[in-house]
Design a protein around this nucleic acid. Structure first.
Length: 475
RNA sequence: GGCGACGUAGCCAAGCGGACUAAGGCAGGGGACUGCAAAUCCCUCAUUCCCGGGUUCAAAUCCCGGCGUCGCCUCCA
């Protein structure tokens, strides 16, 4: 497996610390608001990475945190007249609800800041003891000038950072670039804990150092997140962790590109977000997944309009429709699929694509080439081999696997039902209407039959008459 | 100002010096099938990879110089 390491700026062969084992830490969310599809975008590549390692027989330890203590949570709580804890709980709950639709690999650990205060305090003490941090009026700051490698991840020198001149200046700090490890409590409404430096709470960044090392060790394999976390978040994590342990913190840093909308980065501060419930109202979650996966994980994805995403729905509909048609036509069942082996070259090409720094667009094109071959040839054996391959590929990518005969729910069926529901029809009602149309067609009363098709079309279902009868296509 | 990314068909998007007369998806065109039909099948759809130089037997791929988009340097996935 080759991966682009942000630290070295190179695509490197991944060699795990311990053979056939891999530790992965993914920066989760600060829970002060509902998640949007940009978050999903950055989670998906890591989901595929985890699945792929498992598929390859690795023992994977996957950690994804919740940052549940933070200024933004406190501010939100203040606005809504609630406690910070209530805000965090609310959004953690909504997070689980939102993310469940996307069927991402479940982390082995989901630590929260509030449950790791002791670990954080101990880590800060260690950093102070090693001479990299200082106490200043109840706050603790990391002293950037003491850590000679500061800037190695983002590729910036301290002078460069200062040139930006947008750092928070404070007389409590020795250098404007110094950042807080611990913040003294100032107001009653702030959540706080006792510490050797007085009542207070952890600064941003330190929690990820403490929690990742707790579950994965002082040095671990992979740490990931969105590109925007490179600086300052991940840069600071490195500084803190390495000055505490004097060891390499993370061996491979992976960063996912962002989602753009109308030429601007999707972000809460710009207010141009599409939330998960909004997108689910329009599309099946798999549509968004495909939209995301068809671009490389490091590239930014521009959404110029909702039609961009709609195109992927069309792709999925065509794909699934044709497969299900052949499944029915060839009368294929689950047992038969399990009797064949997947096409060897298809699997090896597919793996090769993913091993090249997770080239999912390439992997998808391989699925389509195989699909073309299988559909076109129409022989049962070739098609069975394709389905078996699809079973493997879709387990890793998390798309193209919603086929009943593979033991999953059917995408087409889901979409038909969803369209009925949205327009206030019940599924059975539509089915009997289709029956009626078939009768009319037998009697060659085509005008009336076409009228029914037109009516059903208004729900977003097109009726395609085939040798196997009328089939429903979501449009 | 500093650091970095990118510029491939109408749109999205692979390509990591030689099987590129450039994958794959969506859209488009022609034909077949069909009572009709946006599904399916067959054919077609970039002589060319932002521009200009250079290196090489060989470049979309490497180097230099332009031009153009964008991100990070402040909270952010």
């Amino acid at each position: 497996m080759k991966l682009k390491n942000t630290l070295t700026r190179k695509i490197e062969e991944f060699v795990p610390l311990r053979e056939k084992e891999v530790g992965i830490y993914l920066c989760g969310l600060t829970v002060y608001d509902r998640m949007h599809i940009g978050h999903i975008r950055s989670f998906i590549p890591f989901d595929i990475l985890v699945r792929y390692f498992k598929y390859k027989g690795y023992k994977v330890t996957f950690v994804r945190n919740f940052t549940d203590v933070d200024d933004k949570i406190i501010n939100r709580a203040l606005q809504e007249g609630k406690t910070a804890q209530e805000i965090a709980e609310t959004y953690i709950k909504l997070f689980y609800e939102d993310i469940s639709h996307f069927e991402l690999a479940k982390p082995d650990f989901e630590p929260r800041v509030t449950e790791n205060i002791q670990e954080i305090i101990e880590l800060i003490q260690k950093i102070i003891r090693n001479g990299y941090a200082y106490v200043s009026d109840g706050d603790v700051y990391f002293e950037v000038d003491k850590f000679k490698d500061y800037g190695k991840l983002s590729g910036m020198s301290k002078d460069d950072m200062l040139a930006g001149a947008r750092v928070e200046v404070s007389e409590k700090k020795r250098n404007p670039l110094d950042f807080a490890l611990w913040k003294q409590k100032k107001y009653d409404y702030e959540p706080s804990w006792k510490s050797p430096w007085g009542e207070g709470r952890p600064g941003w960044h330190i929690e990820c150092s403490a929690m990742s090392m707790k579950y994965l060790g002082e040095t671990f394999d992979i740490h990931g997140g969105g590109q925007d976390l490179i600086f300052p978040h991940h840069e600071n994590e490195i500084a803190q962790s390495e000055s505490a342990t004097q060891k390499t913190f993370v061996r491979y840093w992976l960063h996912a590109g962002h989602l753009f909308i109308g030429g601007e980065k999707m972000s809460k501060s710009l207010g141009n977000i599409i939330t998960v419930p909004q997108i689910l109202n329009m599309f099946h979650p798999e549509v968004l997944k495909l939209f995301i996966i068809k671009s490389h994980y490091r590239s930014n994805i521009e959404i110029s309009g909702i039609e961009d995403i709609k195109k992927e729905e069309k792709t999925l509909v065509n794909f699934y429709y044709n497969i299900e048609f052949l499944v029915d036509k060839l009368k294929i069942n689950h047992e038969e699929i399990n009797k064949v082996e997947p096409d060897e070259s298809a699997v090896s090409n597919f793996e090769k694509a993913l091993e090249e720094d997770m080239n999912t667009p390439e992997a998808i094109s391989i699925i389509f080439s195989e699909y073309d071959k299988a559909i076109r040839e129409g022989s049962k054996y070739t098609f069975l081999k394709f389905l078996k391959f699809l079973n493997v590929a879709s387990d890793i990518l998390g798309v193209f696997g919603r086929i009943q005969v593979l033991g999953r729910t059917s995408f087409i069926e889901d979409e038909i039902r969803r369209r009925c529901e949205q327009k206030g029809y019940n599924y059975e009602e539509i089915c009997s209407l289709i029956e009626k149309r078939n009768e009319l067609r037998k009697e060659k009363r085509f005008q009336e039959a076409d009228e029914i098709r037109r009516k059903i079309m208004e729900i977003g279902i097109y009726l395609q008459d085939t040798e196997l009868g009328s089939r429903k296509i979501p449009v």
